[in-house]
Design a protein around this nucleic acid. Structure first.
Lengths: 342, 342
DNA sequence: TTGTATGCGTTATCAA
DNA sequence: TTGATAACGCATACAA
């Protein structure tokens, strides 16, 4: 039997083939690829030539097995189609595309149990880092994260008790700010309209409530929510419900921009003038908010930047220097537009 | 030195630990996990108990190394945030969440070169299947796909020459159908407005052109395009340009729904009545098209279903029975709405 | 700076 | 149906 031709492998060149061609030991090839600085100029060139000639590509599985560490970032988000998380994920991808790390993306469907399952699954790969959305993990999930043996970044929100690191902003403050803006603009019967009502939406609602109570304007009948997934269609329907319940409504703070857009369209359809009769504020500030007619006031959230920052923090931790501040508050910005310019 | 406690591993239980506890050989454990039918009832129960007790989870890296096959679906899309591809990806995830397969997602940023790079990278993992968006791969990419040694599904479009399998619909027919609808509705000076202009948009444009020429209505000045990424904002701007170039415009077929929405908002802003003065048709039929005021006619495309079908075809191929029809045309549907109801 | 021996956790091969 | 043995391709530990 020849040793050169393995019988199980697909015949792709291995590190041994490269070593033979370059006339060096296999480990030197390995080093030349991972820490070029530790291999002499001359050998490095020979090795690079051999790699080129053979078209050698390292096998990530063998690498992971031997080093007990996969070059993988595990990323868990509640939704793949929600633009908010898509932007976070895009930021993560853009930050990682240069390096050696792959990304393992998981969709939790807003389910804590599913998150647990995926965490279990991802953990079996010994990932280099874990990025998870939100701060409301189940105790079991928290436990899995703590014992993952790698940097962990919770994203989108901030809170007092990070598993390891956090990047995000305060949804409570965001909700409060949006509501205060409506109050300052002169609106009084301000409703809250929210769909899905995940933990972040709950906190925006809490912010709304705080602002309204402070101004002595709160009335539970002003709040219209549903656990149903958010959509523009739903925004329209919820607004109708809210109006039926409370015909004197003169403003709405929406859970997110989809809902806000649905409200705007319904106003058009019902000939309700915006911002005169009704003021509208959205959340997230999607591209279309600025273009809508009238343009819609919204809270701009740094989704893409959160993704980038999460990777930067994880990378720093991997390199051995965890950031001093374990919680990064990236804030938000109120974008005042026509929909509240009464 | 004890053999039971490996010194490099993180101390997680291995298949050998399970085997020892169950009093069987390691390979029997392996079989019990993968092909339970080939292990006797009794041993299987013992093994299951041992797995449970130890909390054993197979190491996917070791598995991939030993079997020369990773349980991974490689998925390449041009964008993570474009709702169209997000839906395809969601379909893929939903179809794969039950089984043993992980997903390796790559973002090509609409770049053929980036696609090549990622294909090279993904290939090194010996994936179980590859799903790629579009049918315009570079020769190098096609080559990589052909030699990947696994099922390949090209999605979103259909064409005459699949690398292996295809699921999608004809964008040319879609563009033609949209344009014909405008013509049938009585519009004559019908513009085409398109951003990004990737291959699929190009074919929609070709469909537009075919329909216009057939009706003797084509005029190159009716076409307004840009390679800039699509957005609602851009839709508004392009519509302004189109109108400046061709003030007698009475209809527009938009590249996609974002553009269409931008056009609609600009019509509101400029007090151009829709559908009386201008008819609008979008493409993809996002949720909001139906809710918009006026609601917007669009071509409904089966994105989610494409993702599901692609996985189904790949799974069938893996199981040894490639579908008879290698090209699956899932079609599209014209949704007539107020924006063209003149 | 470079190489040798060995182990990583699993599955394929082949024999029992 | 079950098991012993030998890969799989690479990196760690240690020696030179």
């Amino acid at each position: 039997m020849l040793k050169a031709r393995s019988r199980r492998g697909g015949g792709r060149p291995t590190i041994a083939d490269v070593a033979r061609l370059a006339g060096v030991g296999a480990i030197t090839v390995s080093r030349a690829l991972r820490e070029p600085g530790r291999v002499s100029e001359e050998l490095r060139r020979q090795i690079e030539a051999a790699v080129e000639e053979l078209g050698y590509v390292p096998d990530p599985n063998a690498r992971a097995l031997a080093s007990a560490r996969a070059e993988v970032f595990g990323v868990l988000v509640p939704s793949l189609t929600n633009n908010v998380f898509a932007e976070v994920v895009r930021g993560i991808y853009d930050s990682l595309s240069d390096g050696p790390f792959r990304i393992q993306l998981g969709n939790t469907h807003y389910s804590g149990l599913e998150e647990e399952r995926l965490l279990q699954l991802f953990g079996s790969q010994r990932p280099a880092a874990l990025i998870v959305a939100g701060i409301d993990q189940t105790p079991a999930s928290r436990n899995l994260l703590q014992n993952a043996g790698c940097p962990v970044v919770q994203v989108m929100e901030i809170g007092p008790d990070p598993v390891d690191m956090m990047v995000g902003f305060s949804h409570l403050d965001g909700g409060r700010r949006a509501t205060e803006h409506l109050i300052e603009a002169g609106y009084r019967r301000i409703g809250f309209i929210g769909a899905r009502m995940d933990p972040r939406s709950q906190r925006r609602l809490a912010g709304y409530r705080a602002a309204m109570q402070k101004a002595c304007l709160f009335d539970p009948r002003l709040v219209t929510t549903t656990p149903v997934p958010s959509s523009v269609t739903l925004g329209r329907e919820l607004f109708r419900d809210a109006l039926a319940k409370m015909p004197t409504l003169d403003g709405v703070f929406c859970n997110n921009d989809d809902i806000a857009l649905g409200v705007l369209f319904e106003c058009h359809r019902a000939s309700i003038s915006v911002p005169t009769t009704i003021g509208i504020v959205g959340f997230n500030d999607l591209d279309m908010m600025e273009v809508a007619f009238p343009s819609i006031t919204s809270i701009r959230t740094p989704r893409y930047e959160i993704g980038r920052r999460a990777v930067a923090m994880a990378l720093a931790a991997i390199a051995g220097n965890r950031p001093q501040e374990r919680v990064a508050d990236l804030g938000f910005e109120l974008k005042r537009r026509e929909s509240t310019a009464r």
